[in-house]
Amino acid sequence: MSAGFSWRKVSTEAKLLLIGIPVALWTLLPIYHLALFAISPKDSAMSGHLWPDHPTLRNFVIVFTQQHHYLEYFWRQMWNSLVIAVAVGALTLFVATGAAFAISRLRVKGGRAVMNLALLTYFIPAAFLAVPMYKTMGVYGLLNTQWALILAMMAIAAPYSIWVLKQASDKLPYELDEAARIDGASPLQLFRLVYLPLMMPSLVAVGTYALLLAWNEYLYAFLLLSNDRELTLGVALGNFLAADDSPWELLMTTGLIYALPPAAIYYAFKRYMVGGLTAGAVKS
């Protein structure tokens, strides 16, 4: 009996491993390949080995010291990515928090309609909106400025942010607002002293969402920016593709560096992200 039971246990574990190992390989393969390139010397990177004979950090040194004409603006572009991401995160938070508060807590007239319009925006496929957005930025005279990208990304991040924040703030007991009203709070005091502190976890989730969305964005950045000095790191990476003589190992190294901050931020705020974002993503 006990032996049979334990055999069953072993077979269950084996079956789980049979799923788990392929899942791990599938997930890590492209990322490992990226890292492999990054620590391989130029000549051995393409030898098809799973581990370089002479691992080196030389590629990182070249990237950080901008010793290649493709990398002339590496730090500048890194900075651009950062500024744009932070600006999108902050502006999205500003716009979405006010809207969610007005719709969910102040129950402003027409709030529901605005929420539906925002949702509708959320369901426009990103690449479809890119074409008119590009033309519009031309009309506004913002093309090839970082403002174009910041504003476009905010417009894309805001609807989902409002939705998530509204879902979260609908869960706060309404009596809190009433108690605050009776205690003498003005709408703005309610917002500042009661609403914001209680919404902090969701605000972190939404801010991170918008920030990562902007940092990771390729299409809009690629369309709206063109000057080398204004580019984000992502677009600069794409530009490596233009030439046949691209330094692949440097491209991969830069790619790895570009991928690290969002992964780190995601893991740092994972606690807020998973609950905050998936809960609102699909209301079941």
């Binding site: 007991p173 009596e175 809190l176 009433e178 108690a179 605050a180 009776i182 009661v194 502190p197 209680l198």
Partner: peptide
């Protein structure tokens, strides 16, 4: 001044 059924204390 009002006392609510749920107390409505500010949790933070």
């Amino acid at each position: 001044a009002m006392v609510f059924q749920s107390y409505a204390l500010y949790p933070h």
